[in-house]
Design a protein around this nucleic acid. Structure first.
Lengths: 205, 205
DNA sequence: ACCCGAATGTTGACAATGTCAACACCTTCG
DNA sequence: CGAAGGTGTTGACATTGTCAACATTCGGGT
């Protein structure tokens, strides 16, 4: 069966490829991942990977997909174990998003940067990214209902929120933010500013 | 002299290369730009470009650099011709930033996405990106003084603002935002929300 | 236990690409 | 006008993604 865990020649090449690919990307960026090199590192031949992935893009897509899963899980975990005020819970969620990127910069870049992959639309990744987005929409809708947030189109508001956290994550992973800066402080300030602009108010605009 | 406009064999290959490279990137992404293809399109041989750029990366860096210049000019122009309230002027500035990205998606990706280039740090681009950032810092400082914005570390506040606009720009250029969405509305909502979170208030935080 | 088809893995080969070296051409300047 | 250097060309090579042909191993049916 094509499912997954098997023990043939190598043991479980497919899983090993995913792991190694992620490792190589983390070490030297997506560019350093070559089909020949990954084979060598795993002690198989250059073409071995083609028995498990149609081409290099497919491998990268799979790695990115795994990243989306992990990110989704982390967000869900934080949301589940949330306590404190509505806004503070939201803030933690945003912070967790950025933290994922900070901890897995190369992986995050792969997930959201088309450049490494082909320029074609890859449905699998679009769906994975979309799932993350829908997660955000749902949370925001909930907090709108509970009165913490302004009542606006939840999708639009989710895009705004996503922009803020993705922007910070992206700037960081691209090395645009001076390394000397205090990223945790920045995460805090970004999420706070964002939510301050999104929260429901009694008076003025 | 190595300066610029000359009229040798080709005319002005260097400039032509920059133009054509930008065009190719806009058409088919950075991946579609190959040294051989650009030569062919310009009617020169594959190695001709090497008389003007050390390698492919150098060409890409130059193109990206030109992008930073254009972006800087646009921001400056908007800032110069600003009218309206302090916050509205800032908002327009942010909107212009995103609009640049929306109008030049591939170019913007090249400018801020390391992936297309080598993973090494390219001082020239770091400086160019930094110049844009400093521009933001200066504007934000000014608006803090004039009382429109909260008084916080201007650099940190600039990072927050940059995150918001870059995030939106980035999500858009990466195709993460459904094409059916109203990008102008989104730009407006994002910049408004951001500034609402950044602005000085009379009462409670 | 044995055989067969499918699943895996290997090697050889090819095309595309970045890049360098050797060579040719044109311009400018003394 | 001739030398020097700037500019462009061609030939060649290493790297890489990928496919085809071939080899090996696993699992199941007899």
């Amino acid at each position: 069966m094509t499912t997954a865990a098997r023990a043939y020649h190598h043991g479980d090449l497919r899983a090993a490829l995913l792991d190694e690919a992620a490792a190589m990307i983390a070490e030297g960026g997506a560019a350093s991942l070559t089909m020949r090199a990954i084979g060598e590192r795993l002690g198989v031949s250059r073409a071995a990977a083609y028995r498990h992935f149609a081409d290099k893009t497919a491998l990268l897509v799979a790695v990115a997909g795994a990243g989306f899963s992990r990110l989704g899980s982390r967000l869900q975990a934080v949301d589940a174990g949330a306590r404190g005020s509505s806004l503070e819970r939201l803030r933690r969620l945003g912070a967790e998003y950025v933290r994922f990127a900070v901890e897995n910069p190369a992986h995050y870049r792969l997930m959201y940067g088309k450049e490494a992959l082909t320029r074609e639309d890859i449905p699998e990744l679009r769906e994975a990214a979309n799932a993350i987005f829908e997660q955000m929409v749902a949370v925001i809708e909930a907090h709108q209902r509970s009165g913490g947030l302004k009542r606006q189109d939840p999708r639009a508001q989710a895009y705004v929120a996503w922009s803020a956290v993705h922007g910070l994550a992206s700037l960081w992973t691209e090395g645009q933010i001076q390394a000397t800066d205090d990223i945790d402080g920045l995460i805090r300030q970004t999420t706070r500013t964002l939510l301050d602009g999104m929260r429901a108010r009694r008076r003025g605009a």
